[in-house]
Simulated scan of single mutants.
Amino acid sequence: MKNILIGYARCSTDKQDLEIQKSSLADLGIDASRIYSDHGLTGTNRTRPGLDQALAAVREGDTLVVAKLDRLARSVPDARWIAEQLTERGVKLQLGASVYDPVDPMGKMFFNILATFAEFEADLIRLRTREGMKRARALGKLRGKKPKLSELQHKELRRMYDTGEYSISDLAEMFTVSRPTIYRTLARTSKTQQV
């Protein structure tokens, strides 16, 4: 049985670059055509097409290689689930230059420690993000999404709708917004008028 190396790379946001991970995987001997990737998907999101392709590509005796464990999974249960799936299929998991051996107690402990740190790091990022947003909101720097229609357009839309001469589709076309936006605007303006 020939041991084929299959690589997987992932970055969480569209602004991040996969090239460093792909370069690391190439340095470990993985052919570029055998590197699967996900761009703009977090490790906590289990729906990752690139990971699914990599898992489908590995066969018994092969090795799935990731630059770091946090590129594969950001939670302990997910990391364990992936490792168990690979073990059941006779596929090895390589983290950087180290091959994870699920039969070896030290290897299993090391893998669990890495998975715990990856999950802890993801939790810290979420916590810092929430704290940053809370602080920005308190300072008035985070105002949410800009409305599609101005206050004047809201009033005009309501006035035109109340005449009964315009349908929702007509208004959506005239104001270049979607029908749901028209419905939401009408619901908001009727509420504010009742106050």
Rank of each mutant, 00 (worst) to 15 (best):
R46Y: 13
F110I: 13
G43I: 14
R71C: 01
D101I: 11
S23W: 00
R59G: 09
V99W: 05
D31K: 10
L28R: 03
Q16D: 08
Y100Q: 07
I82P: 00
D104F: 08
K92M: 09
T116D: 04
R71V: 04
V76H: 06
I82N: 02
T42C: 12
M106Q: 14
T44S: 14
K22S: 00
V103Q: 15
E19M: 11
S75D: 08
P77Q: 03
A79N: 00
V58R: 01
L18W: 00
I35S: 02
L28W: 02
Y36R: 05
K22W: 00
S98R: 15
D38E: 11
D70M: 00
D17E: 06
V65A: 11
A57R: 08
A56I: 04
D101S: 13
G96T: 02
P77M: 01
V58A: 03
L72E: 02
E84M: 07
L72W: 02
V76G: 00
A32E: 11
A57W: 02
N45P: 10
K15F: 07
A79K: 01
S23D: 06
H39D: 14
Q85M: 15
A73T: 04
D31N: 12
A97W: 05
L114G: 05
G40Q: 12
S23K: 07
T44F: 12
S75Q: 10
I35G: 00
P102G: 11
S98V: 13
G96M: 03
T47P: 05
N45M: 11
R59K: 14
D62Q: 06
K108F: 10
G107K: 02
Q94T: 01
T87E: 12
G50P: 09
D17Y: 04
F111T: 03
D78R: 08
P77G: 03
L28G: 01
M109E: 08
T44Y: 15
K92S: 13
A83Y: 00
L51F: 10
G96K: 01
L55P: 03
L114Y: 03
K108T: 13
V91M: 04
L25R: 03
T63P: 06
L86Q: 09
H39F: 15
L114S: 04
E19H: 08
V65N: 04
T47D: 15
G29L: 01
D52Q: 13
Q16F: 06
L86G: 07
